[in-house]
Design a protein around this nucleic acid. Structure first.
Lengths: 204, 204
DNA sequence: GTCTATATTAAGATAGAC
DNA sequence: GTCTATCTTAATATAGAC
């Protein structure tokens, strides 16, 4: 039987880890990954650099955990659209709108997560999560194809293409900072509906 | 008047630089960016590590130059589709096909350039070149919109979305290595034509 | 358990011999 | 002009004091 820490001890460890992660989130939101050295995160958390290593094996693990923490929330928000009423196309469009509007509300952070040059460990997480987003979209698309609402297509391919399209369409406005985001979301939704091949694209 | 090296000297420097870059291309095609340490590139080129610094300011510059060298060719191939006859949608579809087929012919290298975790300097070049691809597509789309062939839309947004879609749709098959690429290109072209909003998507 | 101050270390970069 | 061997350095990671 494996050793387990007493619950109170484990809770302390978790709390400290969360504390560090929250500091990292603040730093990422302000300065992107460029500002997320171990020393800077420790300072933001109000602890010493050495203490960071009580919770994380190293800088790469911290950067990856930070990414997973934030992007898992986005994935959850997008996945929740699976339960909405309406057609598959509308559910996908709703997911796109949710994703894009959340990104535009925290542009610096969204750019950091989507595209900022960063530790290769972050790139690796990007690949993992993009695949997870793809799977969420693919399930909806597969349902639409099965019901005859959408034309025959590979759900995985269309879903992957959509994930890339959404990300890249946001990168420009997010990076520029000043681009009027008002037109981005409607444009993205129209793009999405057309790409799915439903016949209601013009209605969006 | 600025100093200029004698032509013969400059030619030698250029030749050595090209020699190093060609070695890096071979290494990248075999092992991706993971295999492209300065020492490994020097060994592949048959020179010492020190000599690499006669041609490149450092590892990041070399990695970035390697990226630019290879991706500039792809950009050129895609841009050449602007001169094809036919509708804007068909020109865009041709560009997508060219890009995807070239990637699938050198999958390891294409994955390295598109998505492999790498030096942040490479990520920076990715952002630059994705914008350049976007501009090439945007010009075609703008022409299609102006002629009435395509419905009103932001050419930059659609073009950026397409660039992301193409890249992400290829990442999966390229990373898996074994996925049947036979269905990828037709699927991508259908996706593209639908997303543009022309009325000939089903004809592709 | 947390801090300070130090050590590591793995590439990358360079200097000097040939 | 090129190589070998050395050195730097910028963090990261750790050890030991409190």
């Amino acid at each position: 039987m494996p050793y387990r820490r007493p619950p109170a001890v484990q809770a302390r460890l978790d709390a400290r880890r969360d504390h560090v992660l929250e500091a990292a989130v603040r730093l990422l939101s302000r300065e992107g990954y460029g500002g997320c050295s171990v020393a800077a995160i420790a300072a933001e958390a109000g602890i010493s650099t050495g203490s960071v290593y009580q919770s994380f094996a190293g800088k790469s693990e911290l950067a990856a955990a930070l990414f997973r923490t934030l992007v898992a929330r986005e994935l959850e928000a997008v996945a929740a659209c699976a339960d909405l009423p309406g057609t598959a196309a509308h559910r996908v469009a709703a997911a796109v709108e949710i994703f894009a509007s959340r990104a535009l509300q925290a542009p610096r952070r969204a750019f950091a997560l989507l595209a900022e040059p960063a530790d290769p460990a972050v790139d690796t997480e990007r690949l993992v999560f993009r695949r997870a987003f793809r799977d969420v979209y693919a399930a909806q698309i597969a349902a639409g194809v099965a019901s005859g609402e959408l034309p025959p297509q590979s759900p995985e391919l269309t879903a992957a293409a959509l994930v890339g399209a959404i990300a890249e369409a946001l990168v420009g406005p997010l990076a520029d900072g000043d681009a009027d985001p008002g037109e981005v979301i409607p444009g993205l939704i129209t793009f999405t509906l057309r790409a799915l091949g439903g016949h209601d694209a013009a209605d969006a």
